[in-house]
Design a protein around this nucleic acid. Sequence first.
DNA 1: ATAAACCCTATAGTTACTATAGAATCAAGC
DNA 2: GCTTGATTCTATAGTAACTATAGGGTTTAT
Lengths: 129, 129
Amino acid sequence: MKIGKLSKVSGCSIQTIRYYEKENLLSNPNRSEGNFRLYDNNSLKELEFVKHCRSLDIPLSDIKRLIELKQSPEESCSSVNALIDDQLKLVNQRMIELKSLKKELQKMASSCSSDNSIDQCGIIRSLDK
Amino acid sequence: MKIGKLSKVSGCSIQTIRYYEKENLLSNPNRSEGNFRLYDNNSLKELEFVKHCRSLDIPLSDIKRLIELKQSPEESCSSVNALIDDQLKLVNQRMIELKSLKKELQKMASSCSSDNSIDQCGIIRSLDK
DNA sequence: ATAAACCCTATAGTTACTATAGAATCAAGC
DNA sequence: GCTTGATTCTATAGTAACTATAGGGTTTAT
């Protein structure tokens, strides 16, 4: 299949697919006579692997690392585990941050009714502190 | 004070201060004979306003908007309220996403002990799905 | 007078894409 | 055989909010 089809099947945009290829997250596809990329089922699997990782917010550099690791199936998977653990830590950290953001935003929102003048706006006031 | 001092007092890096100025989030400071930026207490307040907004993850474009609104103290503050509401919605949305990320990452982490071979790695297997 | 510390502008790099421009290729209909 | 529209190609620039660097000028202290 050509890139348009792969894009539809996978749900990734055409530009994203080409971008992943340039970043070596996908193996180089065969080309048609007219230089069009030709994909098969394996290409789709590669792309879906990347997509799944991205849905977990794993950065491309780490995905590249995971792909390399997959090339050595007999080695220990401890670094895979470490990578996921780190990702989990990041997510937890970000959740903590968001919780406190949420708190302050809620407090601000409740500190002002929208029919004030900006002069009297409770939100502007708290931002000015 | 010069930019180095402002940087220390505010906790923003020198480059960030210059960047905010270029983006019109800070008013243009006076300059010394040798063309050094000279700041006063009001500059510090401006910077702290921006910093406070940024700590709430409010994008620079919205901060610019808030600063403009502050210039018309007699107008209604309903758009300020709307802006904070939107920001709150974004934060809530992101929290929902992070929760499901966390869930899947935890599931993956628990699906593999680190002394497996990559071949047998539960994490790689779930990513391959 | 000179060296260290500070400041200046302008430019490039970061992440993970998205959006163009301008050209080539292919598929379908006449 | 030809044209038209859809698809593809590469290369480049833009996005957000900074950070980092190069290559200079200025100030302060000795």
